[in-house]
Simulated scan of single mutants.
Amino acid sequence: MCTVSYLPGQSGFILTSSRDEKITRPIARLSDPVMIHDHEVTFPQDPLGQGTWIASSNTRTVCLLNGAFKSHKPRPPYKHSRGLVVLHAFDYFSLQSFAENYNFNGLEPFTLLLIEVGELLVLRWDGSQLFVTEKNPSQKHIWSSATLYKPEIIKKRQDWFDRWISSTEELSLDSIRKFHLTAGDGDPENAIRMRRDNLYETVSLTSVVRSGTEMDMIYEDLIHSETTYKTMSQSYVSN
């Protein structure tokens, strides 16, 4: 599942996630903040696995995509839902500590994006090995789930994003959310807002907006046309 974009800003970023999921899966709801370790975390909770694909405190944001580098054949049973890994990442003091000490064994392959001030890490777990890449947090990025999109489609989606970047005067929350809802070339199976075989569909759109000492989460349920907002005010600025 998921298409995720990242736009840097002068005092923060905008991370936006399209959740591509089975139409029959129960709809998630945006939670009230939950204390995890020393983080007050907000996230849309998946009713099935009790985890999430995107979560944020006022200092850390974590986002999940299914699959690592390529599509894989599921081999259950797995230790637990990948969506719980997103929440477990808040148990660690730093992103590096999580990457170095978390036990990924027994989990289905996934890609995890971890963001703090000045840091953007991409973790890919292929089922047997962890790959950690540092990305430039001052550059724009887009990722597509390896389980739903073939490499040539992922490349095409990158091209759409690059063209949108070059042709858009203002890279704002409204403009990136419009991109997630409208970008494509007429093929609904691989558009950013996708629908495939009456089985998979983009069911929600979530944005995390960091600006200075404040973090906002905007969760839009595309099935029921409902939007929920949460604001996390930061009482301090971490070094």
Results as ranks from 00 to 15, higher is better:
Lys70Gln: 15
Tyr102Asn: 11
Ser94Thr: 15
Leu120Val: 01
Glu108Lys: 06
Lys79Ser: 06
Gly67Ile: 12
Gly127Lys: 01
Phe43Tyr: 14
Phe104Tyr: 08
Gln129Val: 06
Ala99Val: 13
Gly49His: 02
Lys70Trp: 12
Ala99Lys: 14
Asn103Gln: 14
Val122Met: 11
Leu107Cys: 05
Pro109Asn: 10
Met35Lys: 14
Leu114Met: 12
Tyr102Gly: 08
Ser31Gln: 04
Ile36Lys: 02
Ser81Tyr: 03
Glu100Arg: 13
Asp91Glu: 13
Ser57Cys: 06
Cys63Ile: 06
Val34Asn: 01
Val86Gln: 05
Phe131Ala: 10
Asn103Ser: 13
Trp53Asp: 00
Leu48Ser: 09
Arg60Leu: 01
Val85His: 11
Val117Arg: 11
Phe43Val: 02
Lys70Glu: 15
Trp53Lys: 10
Arg60Ile: 03
Leu48His: 13
Asn66Cys: 11
Asn101Gly: 09
Ser57Arg: 01
Asp91Gly: 07
His141Arg: 12
Glu119Asn: 14
His37Thr: 14
Leu65Tyr: 14
Ser81Glu: 06
Glu100His: 15
Leu114Asp: 00
Leu114Tyr: 02
Val132Gly: 04
Phe69Gln: 12
Glu108Leu: 05
Thr42Gln: 06
Ile36Cys: 01
Phe98Ser: 03
Leu120Ala: 07
Ser94Ala: 09
Asn105Phe: 08
Asn103Ala: 14
Val132Gln: 08
Leu107Lys: 07
Gln129Arg: 15
Ser31Cys: 08
Ile54Trp: 02
Arg29Lys: 13
Leu87Phe: 01
Asp32Pro: 00
Leu112Val: 04
Asn103Lys: 11
